[in-house]
Design a binder for these strands. Structure first.
Length: 359
DNA sequence: AAAGTCTACAACCGCAGATCC
DNA sequence: AGGATCTGCGGTTGTAGACTT
């Protein structure tokens, strides 16, 4: 049995809502609650599409919404969060009580973007225009991107939220497929097993790829090469390819990823505990998310891999390890991100994409 | 005062993933 | 299992009021 369609768009009213229509929505919600918006127009006596009713409620009529102007504190928070999250408005709005993603998006587009531009800051990258121009001049010194110095040392896996950039998705896809093939063929550890567990526990999209040793120089004609990172440890089970998490990749209040699909190595987290990167990350998280309970290490501050069932406290969690270069760091924060990740995004990513394009 | 332009923000569109039947 | 619908999201458009010429 097929469901009835949401609405016949040709016969419903569109445009601005009247106070009478608002009152009908409010009366309906107070009686029936939210949900099943397709029934709302009929039950509430409205000649509107259910989707339109839902939008009106979530963006305007919800009682927990603020309708006053944004405070300077909120402004700063939006700028900081945009620096980290980009235009993931719903993610940003989650940190602004009483504001919707639509509110934040509109405020950004009408006020904050212009404000940053007036300050000489590119609202897209949050870098000063002067720096962008000088970067561009430096890059254009090489006649062809193929012969450009690609990345300082991004021997890392980059995790990209699906849908964030369809052009990038298209570039990434074949690369990821190669990574998957390599990994599953050469390791006893199943990539798909790892990926499934990873997604479930860490809420990550299956967008991971390895780019390693893609360095070339202006004088060299060698093409970037794409290789698998070291995933086999000499003294333990194979490691899944590392990745650098993007902002918003959340493992908040989830059991620490463990079990038979992730490697365990005593001492790895010890490296982290003494790493200055943690402080960077904490500071950044604190700056961006002043109300978040940042700072508690995963695994109850113990320097060891977690066991199944272990839970994490606080907003900052790490399963990250730095080392001798045999494998990179992988890590994620509840709502913040490693300092190096924002650098990856704003500074290294253009070259990273160039490298992929050339490849 | 009127016409044109700008600004703020409400509302819509279309896509993708989730859910339902 | 698969197609249809629902829901959430980001991008874009529409519109009313303010401002400028």
């Amino acid at each position: 049995m097929k469901r009835p369609p949401c609405c016949d768009k040709s016969n419903v009213k569109r445009g601005l809502w009247t106070p009478e229509e608002d009152a009908k929505i409010l009366a309906y919600v107070s009686t029936y609650g939210t949900g099943n918006w397709t029934l709302v127009p009929e039950k509430a006596g409205l000649n509107r599409c259910g989707k339109s009713c839902r939008l009106r409620w979530t963006n305007y009529l919800r009682p927990d919404l603020k309708h006053d102007g944004f405070s300077p504190e909120e402004e700063d928070l939006i700028i900081n969060l945009h620096k980290i999250f980009g235009s993931r408005w719903s993610l940003i709005a989650k940190h602004l009580p009483g504001r919707t993603d639509n509110d934040v998006k509109n405020y950004w587009n009408t006020k904050l973007k212009k404000k940053l531009q007036k300050m000489g800051i590119d609202p897209l990258t949050h870098k000063p225009f002067s720096q962008i121009f000088s970067d561009f001049e430096n890059m254009s010194g090489c006649p062809n991107a193929r012969h450009r110095q690609i990345l300082p040392a991004p021997s890392c896996l980059t995790q990209v939220p699906a849908g964030s950039n369809s052009h990038l998705d298209a570039i990434m896809k074949p690369v990821m497929e190669q990574v998957h093939e390599n990994f599953t063929a050469e390791n006893h550890l199943s990539w798909s097993q790892y990926q499934v567990a990873n997604q479930e526990v860490m809420q990550l999209q299956p967008y991971q790829c390895v780019l390693s040793e893609v360095t070339s120089s202006c004088s060299s004609s060698s093409s970037p090469t794409l290789t698998r990172l070291n995933t086999q440890q000499s003294d333990g089970p194979p490691l899944p390819p590392p990745f650098v998490a993007w902002t918003g990749d959340s493992i908040s209040h989830q059991p620490f990823p463990t079990g038979n699909v992730l490697p365990k190595r005593e001492g790895d987290l010890q490296d982290i505990v003494s790493s200055s990167s943690i402080n960077c990350a904490s500071d950044m998280a604190k700056q961006a998310l002043p109300n978040a309970p940042v700072g508690t290490m995963a695994c109850k501050n113990e320097a060891k891999w977690a066991e199944p069932g272990d839970s994490c406290e606080g907003a900052l969690e790490l399963d990250c390890h730095f080392g001798d270069g045999s494998y990179s760091c992988f890590g994620s924060f509840t709502d913040a991100i490693l300092d190096r990740d924002s650098k990856m995004r704003s500074e290294l990513f253009p070259e990273f994409i160039d490298g992929l394009l050339d490849y």
